[in-house]
């Protein structure tokens, strides 16, 4: 398929259809609304079902029903709306149901504002709802990745029978770039035996409920499931990490600025590198093995509290200084990042 110019949100929506998604229900909220608007007409074109739900609560619970019935089901939101979906995500996890939920992150707590942000990291990676769970989280850094990650997200969701989150942001969602939409694939709603379809006489009834009630070895099953995800699904991109004295750690829109920072710093002799987590959970601990020359790590995130710092400290076993370069009102500038890196190296912090 040839490249086309699309907004990140639209590319994500079209790629969901390409991945065989035929059910969407969501609620408008900036900056993800283009996904809903695009699918409001495009879903019909491909013979799928689109519902503008009365709330995020209804939206996520419609997705739960569609997933239980065998569809590749999607819902999308941002910040406040994503919070409302957390109960439903917890129920999806509890019942071993695959689905894809996108958070096009916006800035701030409470209502916040509609511009880009990366303040939902904790909510995305710690299990934002009640209970004892985590979900796989993919973090695209471009319109192309918005498109490429949809099929991967649905595949992973089905592989583990577990919801998969996509951590996009307002910048990635709103920017227009050239993108190649992946080939369309067919999804068969009868692909799995466990989906509800009607119980024939003499056959076993299908029950979609918290597997806590029914699984004969619940604790081991869950421990193994999460361990396998942590071992098998770490994804990352390392950029000039091997000889870097200071390694930046950033995902999504911030990682794009960090690429520039690495290049500019190296032009003036400062050895910066970049670890870009592509999965936020599992956190790509393996990426840090390559950082053999590192003296310190600096996360670059669009939040105030440095939400990823703890994960970097854990990944490096607390052996190195880890600091945070935060910017919430604007996307961080690369020269500010370089300055902060120089300060860290000069201070003798390292």
């Amino acid at each position: 398929m040839a490249k086309v110019l699309l907004k990140g949100n639209e590319a994500l929506a079209e790629a969901a259809l390409a991945a065989g998604c035929r059910f969407y229900s969501g609620y408008p909220i900036t900056p993800q609304t283009e996904i809903l608007e695009y699918l409001s007409w495009r879903m019909e074109d491909v013979g799928g079902e689109f519902i503008q739900a009365e709330s995020e609560l209804a939206g996520i619970n419609m997705v739960l029903g569609a997933a239980a019935a065998g569809a590749r089901a999607l819902t999308t939101s941002s910040g406040p709306g994503f919070s409302l979906k957390q109960e439903g995500i917890s129920y999806l996890v509890a019942a071993d149901l695959p689905a894809v939920i996108v958070d096009v992150m916006r800035i701030g707590t409470g209502l916040g504002d509609i511009s880009q942000g990366q303040g939902d990291y904790w909510q995305l990676t710690r299990g934002g709802g009640h209970g004892d769970y985590r979900t796989l989280v993919l973090a695209p850094d471009s319109v192309q990745e918005n498109a490429d990650m949809m099929a991967e997200a649905f595949d992973l969701a089905e592989k583990y029978r577990h919801p998969v989150l996509i951590a996009s942001d307002a910048a990635i969602g709103q920017m227009i770039e050239a993108v190649e939409i992946p080939e369309f694939i067919e999804h068969d709603i009868d692909k799995f035996d466990w989906t509800i379809k009607g119980c024939k006489k003499g056959t076993e009834q299908r029950k979609i409920q918290n597997i806590y009630y029914t699984h004969p070895d619940y604790e081991t099953y869950l421990a193994d499931k999460y361990a396998e995800m942590e071992e098998q699904e770490q994804r990352y991109e390392n950029i000039q990490v091997e000889d870097a004295e200071l390694v930046l750690v950033a995902y999504g829109i911030s990682s794009r600025v960090c690429r520039e920072a690495v290049e500019a710093a190296r032009a003036e002799g400062l050895k910066l590198g970049l670890i870009r987590p592509v999965t936020l959970w599992p956190f790509p601990v393996k990426a840090f093995e390559e950082a053999k020359a590192a003296k310190a790590f600096l996360t670059v995130e669009m939040n105030i509290l440095g939400q990823m710092v703890d994960d970097v400290k854990l990944a490096t076993c607390g052996k190195y200084p880890v600091d945070h370069y935060g910017s919430i009102f604007e996307i961080p500038e690369y020269d500010g990042i370089i300055e902060k890196a120089k300060e860290m190296l000069k201070k003798g912090e390292v």
Partner: peptide, 14 residues
């Protein structure tokens, strides 16, 4: 019957 146990108040949406 094949059955889903849905969240409180949400079975109709499901």
């Amino acid at each position: 019957f094949d059955t889903i146990m849905a969240a409180h108040g949400r079975p109709i949406a499901t």
